[in-house]
Write a protein that binds this DNA or RNA. Sequence first.
DNA 1: TTAATTGCAAACATTTTGCAGGTTC
DNA 2: GAACCTGCAAAATGTTTGCAATTAA
Lengths: 144, 144
Amino acid sequence: MTIDAVNPNPDDKTLAALLSAHRVYPTAQRLMVARILFARHQHATADGLLHALHAAGQRVSKATVYNTLARFVEAGLLREVIVDNQHTFYDSNTRPHHHFYNLDSGELTDVNIATPLAVRDHDLPAGTTLDSVDIVIRIRNAAG
Amino acid sequence: MTIDAVNPNPDDKTLAALLSAHRVYPTAQRLMVARILFARHQHATADGLLHALHAAGQRVSKATVYNTLARFVEAGLLREVIVDNQHTFYDSNTRPHHHFYNLDSGELTDVNIATPLAVRDHDLPAGTTLDSVDIVIRIRNAAG
DNA sequence: TTAATTGCAAACATTTTGCAGGTTC
DNA sequence: GAACCTGCAAAATGTTTGCAATTAA
């Protein structure tokens, strides 16, 4: 059960319950982060979140934002998306899907196509198991 | 024509011709890098290359290794593979293929399956064109 | 000779870490 | 009360940049 299945604009009580259900202590700072991330599906960066929180007058430190994001990923509340070594994106949509990455704008968007890529264990190198399949479709703005 | 189609272990003359053909001045340092990269298909990192060159007694600076790799990518001699924010991998196999990334070992290996993913322009967001499709299959070492 | 490249060190951006004080269960 | 979290500043990492000296065409 993902948060968006429950409520598209969750209140703090719902968010606190969500964090607790994932064994993440619902501290004030984590709720601030969750409030932004789980209001809707989005692709956030640590720096972007920090700025958004500060702009909203919230008191959170950089370290806490990083720690919180790492904790959420570990708990399965967020998915890390690696498309660019300059920034790590955190995707609040944890359901299977893939991405368009616009090389010109740096914008990351969801691709809602079914993955025609069935990976079976016997396709993998010996002694390994599947973690995930990431598909990134890199695009550019059309010239002219 | 890729270098490996010509010679699996190219000599300096062949390498210099390859660089020139791609409008890359064949300087001593670039040949050192090319000698390693194009001896066989591989996934190198800037730091790994620098160490390999220094271990071999070659005199190259860190900046030159980075500049050279960027120049080779720009010239189409190498392909950048983004799988991990800690390192950028440079793949000397520029033919279309995908990757296994072992999260436990950090090892990157080629997947030689045909991509069952045909992306057409009308599948892309309006006003954009396709650059590339990157598929990364993340794996872990099997427990036990 | 003209444009391009190299090396060095310093600058950068992002992320991580150590630790004292505060918070959660 | 025991375990966990926060904020700050400092450190670590990987990569880029500025510039004088050198090399390629």
